[in-house]
C-alpha cells in the first residue's frame, strides 16, 4: 500500500500540499446507480412472490430463484466496489515540488505522470453544467513545458481554489529555480526580482 509519505521519487524537502480526488458527488452518483440495481430486482421479486406464492414451495423454482439472486447480488456488490476503487484510486497530488497524476483505467491499466511546478506555464479552471455549478466541482487544466503538456484534474471540488494553489506554488518554485540557476546574482538584484515576480 502507498503511505502518504512514500510517493515515487519523494525528496526529503518535499511536502504534500494537497491530495485531490473527484468530488464526492461523483461517487454518490455511481453508488446510486448500484443501489437502483439492487433495489429494482428486489421489488420485482417481491411482486412475483406476491402473485405467485407457490414459487417458494416449488422444488425447481425456489432453488433457481435463490441461486440466481445470490449470483446477481454478489456481482452487483462487486460492481459497486469496483466503482469505489475507480473513484478512490484516481487522484492528483500537489506537493511543494510537483504535481502527480495517478489514474486507474480498468482492471490492469494504471498511469502515473508527474510534472515539476516550475515547468507550469498556464493554469485554467472550468465549471460546466447544472450539477457542477450547484455542487461546485469542475476541471483544472495545467499547461506545462514537459513531455506531457497538459495535466487535467477531472471533476474535482472547488477547482478555482486548486487553480490558485497551483499558480502560487508554481510561482514559488520558479523563484527557487531562478535562484538555483543564478547563484552569482547579488542580493540587491535578487530582492528586486523577487518583488517583480
Amino acid at each position: 500500500m502507498l503511505s502518504a509519505y512514500r510517493l515515487p521519487n519523494f525528496s526529503p524537502n518535499e511536502k504534500i500540499i494537497k491530495i485531490v480526488r473527484r468530488d464526492l458527488i461523483i461517487l454518490l452518483g455511481r453508488l446510486l446507480y448500484g443501489a437502483v440495481l439492487i433495489v429494482l430486482p428486489l421489488v420485482l421479486l417481491a411482486l412475483g412472490l406476491f402473485y405467485n406464492p407457490a414459487w417458494l414451495s416449488s422444488p425447481l423454482i425456489y432453488p433457481v430463484l435463490v441461486l440466481s439472486a445470490s449470483v446477481y447480488f454478489l456481482f452487483i456488490w462487486l460492481f459497486i466496489f469496483f466503482q469505489f476503487i475507480d473513484y478512490y484510486l484516481d487522484l492528483w497530488i500537489i506537493t511543494s515540488e510537483r504535481i502527480i497524476d495517478i489514474q486507474q483505467y480498468g482492471f490492469f491499466s494504471r498511469v502515473i505522470a508527474e510534472q515539476r511546478l516550475y515547468r507550469i506555464q498556464d493554469v485554467a479552471s472550468e465549471t460546466h453544467g447544472f450539477w457542477a455549478t450547484i455542487f461546485r466541482y469542475g476541471e483544472v487544466y495545467v499547461q506545462t513545458a514537459g513531455e506531457k503538456q497538459r495535466f487535467t484534474f477531472y471533476q474535482i471540488p472547488n477547482p478555482d481554489d486548486i487553480r490558485n494553489t497551483i499558480i502560487q506554488l508554481a510561482e514559488i518554485s520558479k523563484k527557487k529555480q531562478y535562484k538555483i540557476a543564478n547563484p552569482a546574482v547579488n542580493a540587491n538584484l535578487a530582492s528586486v526580482l523577487d518583488q517583480n515576480l
Binding site: M1, L2, A4, F75, I85, L89
Partner: peptide, 19 residues
C-alpha cells in the same frame, strides 16, 4: 466472480493508501 474479487482486493492492497 472470485477471480474478480481477487483482482479488486489486489488493487486496493497494492495501490490504496494506508488509511
Amino acid at each position: 466472480w472470485f477471480a474478480l474479487v481477487l483482482v479488486a482486493l489486489y488493487h486496493m492492497f497494492h495501490y490504496g493508501y494506508k488509511n
